[in-house]
């Protein structure tokens, strides 16, 4: 137990470059695998939280843009959504890395973009924005027309109508799918260090370390289940957080209509 505490001190923040410099090379203990893979989770959480949070705002803008009547707002939004939803994230990572490399030659301002912490984050941010925008756009389309008519009848228009009627209803309708999208986004963060982006000083995410142990111990049956456990915990946490928001969004509805909302056939990715 004491030994494991020492491991925690040495490797708990290894993925951020704090603590022991060398990774364990032999005599791998279960504790080391738990600690290091857990340490890598900080990257997954960082990528996921920042991308999803920032993506929420861009997604709302894009969804409104796609629904806009003006061609020069609608077309760019549609194209943005199409490009990021229509191609695999894995290929986007590769392409973005090579693109950033070329941009860097042209202008030094792009040099941080070839590191995972910024370059991969940008890709994830754009990606989740596009997916969420499509979900929000779908929700905007399925707002019951009665709701909008009621708002019109109250003499609302423009910003107040959006702020008080359209936006809350959109979120309420989109929320189950949006929860799925958030879960997906957290899981997609594992692709970062498996694509073009190199790992510096062996600082990687949870999958990087799980893969490290699987390669060193030649036994995939321990590190990958540990990784799975961490991700299930993370997923439960996301579901719990989004569930709380969902209850808040639906607080005015009668009891039986509330529960039905979560059982809408979820439109996953």
């Amino acid at each position: 137990m004491n030994e494991c505490f020492q491991t925690l001190m040495d490797y708990g923040l290894r993925s951020q470059g704090i603590g022991e410099k060398l990774l364990p090379r032999s005599d791998f203990t279960l504790c080391q695998q738990f600690v290091l893979i857990g340490s890598g989770m900080t990257w997954n959480i960082y990528f996921g939280v920042v991308a999803v949070f920032a993506g929420f705002f861009l997604a709302t803008a894009l969804a409104l843009g796609k629904g806009s009547r003006h061609l020069w707002i609608r077309k760019p939004s549609e194209w943005f959504i199409f490009v990021f939803r229509g191609s695999p994230l894995f290929v986007q990572f590769f392409f973005a890395y090579f693109l950033f490399l070329s941009l860097k030659q042209a202008h030094p301002a792009f040099s941080p973009f070839t590191s995972a912490w910024l370059g991969a984050l940008v890709v994830l941010f754009f990606n989740t924005s596009a997916y969420s925008a499509e979900i929000f756009y779908g929700a905007l389309q399925s707002i019951p027309k009665g709701d909008i008519e009621a708002a019109d009848a109250y003499g609302m228009s423009g910003w107040p109508r959006f702020r008080r009627v359209i936006w809350p209803t959109m979120l309420r309708l989109a929320w189950p799918s949006y929860t799925n999208e958030a879960i997906f986004m957290f899981q997609s963060t594992t692709l970062v260090f498996f694509s073009g982006f190199p790992a510096t000083q062996q600082r990687g995410d949870a999958l990087y370390y799980a893969n490290y142990f699987a390669d060193k111990t030649f036994n995939p049956f321990i590190p990958y289940p540990i990784l799975a456990m961490y991700f299930i915990l993370l997923t439960l946490l996301v579901i719990w957080g989004y569930g709380a928001v969902n209850r808040y969004l639906n607080r005015h509805l009668p009891q039986e209509r509330r529960s039905r909302l979560t059982f809408r056939p979820n439109v996953i990715r």
Binding site: L22, L23, R25, P198, T200, Q201, Q202
Partner: peptide, 16 residues
């Protein structure tokens, strides 16, 4: 890669 991490204290390893 192992050499850079273990025996080059001042260097930063970039893995591909």
């Amino acid at each position: 890669a192992a050499y850079v991490t273990a025996d080059m204290p001042g260097a930063t390893l970039l893995e591909f």
